[in-house]
Amino acid sequence: MNDSVTKPATKTRSKVKTQVQRPRLYKVILVNDDYTPREFVVMILKAEFRMTEDEAYKVMITAHRRGVCVVAVFTRDVAETKATRATDAGRAKGHPLLFTTEPEE
């Protein structure tokens, strides 16, 4: 009689880690114009981007002095939605206010 014990064959499983990439981010940019009142721009920044009065004023002044200013950075869908809503709010009041988006580097 054979006293050796046989072990059942086992399969080893290797764990597979899936790497989830972060979504690409997009900048919302305020483009300066010479016609939209400063107070209106500040109001839009506060309403759409939830900025304080001081933050909105600083963004507006930066765009006024440099021609453009990055307002915020979001995922693509959020950035495009906010830029479109802010631009449309200006157009609804007859202002040429413009917000654009571009990929962050």
Rank of each mutant, 00 (worst) to 15 (best):
M60G: 00
Y57H: 07
R65V: 14
P23Y: 09
R50A: 12
R66M: 10
H64N: 08
V70P: 01
N2V: 15
M51W: 00
K7A: 10
G67H: 04
E48Y: 10
I44T: 04
N32K: 02
P37F: 05
L30S: 09
V70T: 13
T62Y: 00
C69W: 01
K11Y: 12
P8R: 14
E48I: 13
V16L: 13
K7D: 11
L45Y: 06
H64I: 03
Y35E: 06
M43E: 11
L45A: 01
T36L: 07
N2C: 10
E55Q: 08
Q19L: 12
R76C: 12
L25Y: 07
V28Y: 04
P37M: 06
V70F: 04
C69E: 12
N32I: 06
K7I: 14
A9F: 14
T12H: 10
R24Q: 12
K46W: 03
R13E: 15
A56F: 05
V42S: 03
D77L: 13
Y26G: 00
T75S: 15
V73D: 01
E55W: 03
D34P: 04
A83D: 01
A79I: 08
R66Y: 07
R24S: 11
T81V: 15
A79T: 11
E39W: 03
K27F: 03
F40V: 03
K82P: 07
V71T: 02
M60K: 02
A63V: 09
A56R: 03
R66P: 02
R22M: 13
Y57W: 14
M51I: 02
E80W: 04
D3W: 13
L45H: 00
M60I: 03
V41R: 01
V70M: 09
K11M: 09
K27L: 07
R13I: 15
A83C: 03
F74K: 09
M43I: 10
E53S: 08
I29M: 03
K17S: 11
D33G: 00
A79F: 08
L25Q: 13
Y26S: 02
P23K: 13
S14G: 11
K17R: 13
H64S: 02
T12Q: 11
Y26V: 05
A79C: 05
T36I: 08
V20Q: 13
R22Q: 14
V78L: 06
T18H: 11
R13V: 15
P23V: 06
A47C: 07
E48K: 08
V16R: 13
R66L: 15
S4K: 12
C69Q: 06
E48G: 01
F40A: 06
N32A: 08
K27A: 15
V31S: 11
F49H: 04
T52S: 10
V31T: 07
T12F: 12
T52N: 02
M43D: 09
E80S: 00
S4Q: 12
T36D: 04
D34A: 11
K27G: 01
Q21C: 05
Q19H: 14
M43G: 00
V42C: 04
D34G: 10
K82Y: 12
P8D: 06
R38D: 04
A79H: 03
K82I: 07
